[in-house]
Design a protein around this nucleic acid. Structure first.
Lengths: 121, 121
DNA sequence: TGATTTACTAACCTTTTGTATAGCGCTATC
DNA sequence: GATAGCGCTATACAAAAGGTTAGTAAATCA
């Protein structure tokens, strides 16, 4: 391998690693089975706890509660509780959370394509 | 709530659930900590096993091997082994796998933004 | 009276993921 | 002749993620 080619390979290796870091930062916040579905739900509007859980098949109260807390800590979601009875809690996206819209949209497009290609053949 | 408003709510509920399904299809294939990093690595070019593992911090041989197998089953990755010694195995993306490029790109943009906002403040 | 509702939490259990270590077959290098 | 390299696989175990069940508060409804 000549010098020029070796340098080019080293470059793409470095570029690749930097991309990877950013991708991992994103995945670090969106990890687990439920965070992206939760964000998807809230991109359609503010919701109460039970409304979210109805939209996401298979999620348990425990998981939903935990994941919402994580998302709140990472400033993607905000929570407003009123001390009525039964309790009323509203979840909504922060501006930062709403900036995930394009990511979720791409996942949606890709997921539809994938379903057609693999699952629904 | 009047009838028109109730219908509109029912509509967004349904649209939301359909989006959710497609998003979950995508996540079903890309689940776990490693699949998206692996795809990111292969989007930069065909790679051998060790090359991928060098680019992804923290992944073990066991996990890498398992996840590559999953991706192969889902037709995102293809594998070519030549029976030389030491063994030479080349991994590359299928066309379907390459179609994930936009998803990964969005994750990369968002991850960079997120790092600046939350981690690197 | 007692069942229902909401947004959780605690206890416990299972499944998935990760870690550590070893080994294989064969070649090339020290 | 020992050692390093590749692309795994096997075994055993620890840790993390996720699921199941049950329970709480206080008001409302039958």
């Amino acid at each position: 391998m000549d010098t020029a080619k070796r340098n080019k390979n080293a470059d793409t290796f470095e570029t690749c690693r930097q991309r990877m870091l950013a991708v991992k930062d994103a995945l670090g916040v969106l990890n687990g089975r439920w965070k992206i579905p939760i964000m998807t739900s809230l991109l359609f509007g503010d919701k109460r706890f039970k409304e979210i859980s109805k939209e996401i098949d298979g999620v348990t109260d425990k998981m939903l509660s935990k994941e919402l807390k994580d998302l709140e800590i990472n400033q993607l979601v905000k929570k407003e509780a009123r001390d009525t009875f039964p309790p009323t809690v509203k979840y909504s996206l922060t501006e930062h959370g709403r900036s995930l819209e394009t990511v979720v949209a791409e996942l949606y497009y890709w997921g539809s394509k994938h379903r057609k290609k693999i699952i629904g053949k």
